[in-house]
Design a protein around this nucleic acid. Structure first.
Lengths: 266, 266
DNA sequence: GTCTACATTGCACATATTGCAACGCTAGCG
DNA sequence: CGCTAGCGTTGCAATATGTGCAATGTAGAC
């Protein structure tokens, strides 16, 4: 497509993983060293990579700056940051914040648990998360306008990652109904068998669900029931963030209206 | 140097600022639309940019992911995050965390004040900060081993940004001595006349200063004295973070040893 | 000192990138 | 309804651009 740009991207990627010497860079691209040098020089001039004292190249501040610019424009992240950290501290589990961006659901913040399980979680801010095999994905999906939901699901090829994955339209729809009834979602090892999550929706000022917050643990640390015991605190966090975004919860209807399948918060 | 890569970088930059249509992209580069299209397609395949529903291009999650990878490797950021946010909440000023990376001092976290001054602060995570005209810069500089300090300063061309800037080696050295005596630094509008800061050092497990935390306000919000009234809380935050990094403060010597010019914490 | 390993520069070549022109699509409008 | 204007997209030929080579510079090991 665009060879030199591809090569540049490749070098950026590699340099983000570990420091790259020129010879190394030339090797991974399969090009002459002089070629690699000129690519790296160009990237360096934009501060996309940086030369260390040892002469190796690592990711530069220019890129970080750009990505902060993009993330920073998300008010949500700002408003949520403190709440997420409080939630992490009080539950001691890893906390995620994910948002629908285009056709993908992206982690836009993550607060690691200091416990050792953190290293095993593959999630990362900026990375996309499965839309149908994650608690945050299903939560956002559940509250999406149906035509939008159909659009997203039309691209999806269902993959049965584990025994608990909702890997077809029918069972997924049933799950989404349950989520709307509860007002929250779980992930019972649906993507990775040993990873458990509970998630709750975040709404903007129009009442539209735009994101979800979740707590995660691997099963040896906490099973799904133990995780679920944090639900009140999780829902409280989600509602606090929603409120800061300008969401005013509708008056709670009298308790005797259970025939409305939608969440009482809707 | 490498034309197409430069163009790609330019488009990444622009797309981070605001959504870019294809024709717009071609215009800013001064190239044909087909050329711009192919560059954008290449970037899109790496998720460096993303197509919106409207057909415009915005910054993609691939970049964010990369930068998280680089920032995430900095334990410091993780450990500090919650403390910084608490400090912001309690002082109501903007909080910065900066770290020496290569030859530059880079902001690696920032917690905006909800007050209106936030928009006027040009600082941004990933961006370099002046090494001699900022509170965090001077703090880190003050505690650097002298040969390392000389190396950094040898590149520097002094610029007298404002009337208070320490714009020559001599006055800067005197300031650094003061900082070591105090254990903290101020920025009395030394880069931007109306921006005030107070900063404190963060140490790693070897006792080496590797970063600094600061609180910032514009003068109409708080003058330097008002800002300085938050010193106890700021120092406490810096020490907490140091402790989490494994720093064990040396036993405080008996009060009667003032002849040691270095900080008592050293 | 010599050797090796690595980064860097100048130059000739050819290949990847470019601009062009033609096409398809959608939306607006007479 | 059909016309036009604006935008994105594709195929192709020309050449500017990026490439590899060979020579040079530099630093460290022995």
């Amino acid at each position: 497509m665009a060879q030199s740009i591809r090569r540049a991207i490749d070098l950026i990627r590699r340099s983000a993983e570990h420091p790259l010497s020129l010879t190394e860079a030339a090797d991974v691209l399969g090009v002459h060293k002089s070629t690699a040098l000129r690519i790296l020089q160009t990237l360096e001039s934009a501060r996309f990579v940086r030369r260390t004292g040892a002469g190796t190249y690592v990711l530069g501040s220019g890129l970080i700056e750009l990505s902060e610019l993009a993330l920073g424009s998300m008010d949500l992240r700002q408003f949520a940051a403190a709440h997420l950290r409080a939630l992490q501290r009080e539950t001691s589990h890893t906390v995620h914040l994910a948002q629908l961006t285009g056709d993908e659901i992206i982690y836009i913040d993550k607060v690691d648990s200091p416990a050792f399980d953190a290293v095993k979680l593959p999630s990362r801010v900026g990375r996309a998360v499965s839309i149908y095999a994650s608690a945050v994905g299903k939560t956002i999906l559940a509250y999406l306008p149906s035509e939008e939901r159909d659009r997203l699901l039309s691209h999806v090829v269902f993959d049965r990652f584990t025994g608990t994955t909702f890997a077809d339209h029918e069972s997924l729809e049933a799950e989404l109904v349950r989520i709307r009834e509860n007002g929250w979602a779980t992930d019972n090892g649906e993507h990775d068998a040993y990873v458990m999550c509970v998630a709750a929706p975040i709404r903007d000022s129009r009442g539209q669900v735009i994101a979800a917050v979740s707590i995660t643990a691997i099963e040896v640390i906490a099973n799904l029931d133990q995780l679920r015991s944090n639900l009140p605190r999780l829902l409280e966090t989600a509602n606090q963030i929603s409120r800061e975004l300008g969401h005013t919860p509708p008056p709670v209807p009298s308790p005797a209206t259970p025939e409305d399948g939608r969440s009482i918060d809707e």
